[in-house]
């Protein structure tokens, strides 16, 4: 009977626990929030907004799940670098737009990530809300980020071991926000030495603390493939769009930050 009570308790806790992130809304049994036209129109709106401000490089985030399901302090679920590019189309034309440099989880292997390039309409496919958080770095910071993206450092900084709550202060696991921070720090300090980057992050970056009950912390890694606390000591701390935005504001690295909604 005690086992039954324990299982029921865990079940209740898991059902009532907050989610961390994600784009599960494109799964087969998920509700359809937006039409293809709405997504395409919004993606173009964001693209034009960033281009209108002359950004060669921007950091953009999306809302993959209902904010009500996200832990306190987390407003966006994925972020990536948008790079103003010359795009050759399949029919041989050259057009201007943004290509996006993402770290994505593998859909069939959620604890593994790949570096994936796509475009704005792909970026917003399957979101919960048509909203984008945007940070436009100062031009020299944009240049430094682009130097990293264009070099072998960009791949070198990638750790395919994925955890949705990866600690930004070590390289045991990585998620899209930590990777964004790693690329940014590499650009600022002009080094690909991960130990140095993590030491700098520990000194200057303030992460988001994730508050979970002890049971969720205990059982989460057992039941959820992309959730582990092995890289954390006490509190679960992770990088988010908001904490990276705050970091950039604090050290005067930002030209402008804002959000765009449908």
């Amino acid at each position: 009977m005690r086992i039954l009570q324990l299982v029921a308790c865990i079940l209740w806790l898991s059902l009532s626990s907050p989610v961390f992130a994600g784009n599960m809304s494109t799964s087969d049994d998920s509700p359809v929030n937006f039409t293809q036209e709405e997504i395409i129109s919004f993606a173009k709106k964001v693209e034009k907004s960033i281009a209108g401000k002359g950004a060669r490089v921007a950091i953009v985030s999306r809302v993959g799940r209902s904010p009500e399901e996200l832990p306190s302090g987390i407003n966006y679920t994925h972020m990536a670098f948008w790079v103003y590019s010359n795009i050759q189309t399949a029919d041989g034309r050259n057009i201007r737009g943004y290509q996006i440099y993402n770290l994505y989880q593998r859909s069939e292997e959620l604890d593994v990530s790949d570096l994936v390039n796509d475009f704005p309409a792909d970026f917003f496919a399957g979101v919960f809300e048509l909203e984008a958080g945007i940070v436009i770095p100062k031009p020299k910071v944009q240049k430094a980020i682009l130097d990293v993206i264009a070099s072998g450092t960009y791949k070198k900084l990638h750790n395919p071991k994925y955890s949705v709550v990866a600690s930004p202060f070590n390289n045991q696991y990585q998620n899209c926000t930590e990777y964004t921070l790693d690329v940014l720090m590499s650009a600022l300090y002009r080094t690909d030495d991960m130990d140095q980057l993590k030491a700098n992050a520990a000194e200057y970056f303030t992460p988001q603390t994730i508050h979970l009950s002890p049971l969720k912390t205990l059982f989460g890694p057992i039941f959820v493939e992309d959730f582990t606390t092995r890289d954390h000591n006490d509190a679960i701390e992770t990088a988010t769009f908001t904490t990276i935005k705050n970091f950039m504001q604090k050290y005067d690295l930002t030209l402008e930050d804002y959000s765009v909604k449908l």
């Binding site: 989610v19 992130a21 599960m24 494109t26 993959g64 770290l103 994505y104 792909d122 992309d226």
Partner: peptide
Amino acid sequence: TAQPAIAQGSLGHSI
């Protein structure tokens, strides 16, 4: 049910 409860962060999609 536990899977979506502490769910994914960064899945890629194509429009």
